[in-house]
Design a binder for these strands. Structure first.
Lengths: 128, 128
DNA sequence: CAGCATCCAGAGTGATACTG
DNA sequence: CAGTATCACTCTGGATGCTG
């Protein structure tokens, strides 16, 4: 389990694998566009690591302008259904989000209120 | 997908969820023992976040010494099979690791060798 | 286009001490 | 036992400029 997390637990790895699952083959610039928060540097870094770990393949075309394509290795492909499940789970989470958040926010408000009362009481006691 | 990653992508979250999947109910100190690299501080932090996100339940016993038990919420339980798949995938990875690593290390060695030759050549050229 | 090198602020993390 | 608080430090990751 910890091994798995080492391999795909990188900040962007799962997301990149997910996109590669859907699109099969993607160029560097395409991957760079999937999330503005994912910088060129991070993208390169994460891609290199996954390449080294045998999760993705990097194909370089010797031409100008350069062209590099990324795709999943057989090992990476095996992750596809799992990533799909995770995505589905996220959708389920969204459905129940309203109830959860309502409950959570009520509890949170209660908590704050309680703390306020405790603090105020203590302050009054300190001041005599 | 990105939502899911926000929720369980934390450095230790998946691992904690995985242990809670197997043991149903665990105390703070038990969770603290699963990995020496997981410090008390990190553990508390990650547990709090998952509690807030409705993935786990925190049950406090009003007694001395204190006792706190953690368990999965229904939402968290739904992750169990997915985490199981990830773990299985990790095992498969291990099986094919030898071949992959052999291939990778050979390539790596070749790469290093090539770079060495290039650098040395350039150096010699620079020095006349 | 795809990627590397460098610099650097700030988030993330560890170590330690303290508390109910 | 199960945390909280604080400080110091690491190391990620953002901005920028350069290269084949």
């Amino acid at each position: 389990m910890e091994l798995t997390l080492d391999l795909i637990g990188g900040k962007w790895k799962s997301l990149l694998l997910w996109y590669l699952s859907n699109n099969k083959i993607m160029r560097f610039s395409e991957l760079n566009r999937i999330n503005p928060k994912l910088t060129q540097k991070m993208l390169t870094q994460q891609l290199r690591e996954m390449e080294r770990d045998g999760l993705i393949t990097r194909k370089v075309y010797a031409q100008v302008p350069p062209k590099v394509e990324y795709s999943l290795t057989p090992l990476g492909v095996k992750l596809t259904p799992i990533l799909g499940s995770l995505c589905e789970w996220g959708k389920e989470y969204l459905k129940s989000e309203n109830q959860v958040n309502e409950a959570a926010s009520q509890e949170h408000a209660l908590h704050n209120c309680k703390n306020y009362l405790i603090n105020t009481t203590e302050k009054l006691e300190d001041e005599g």
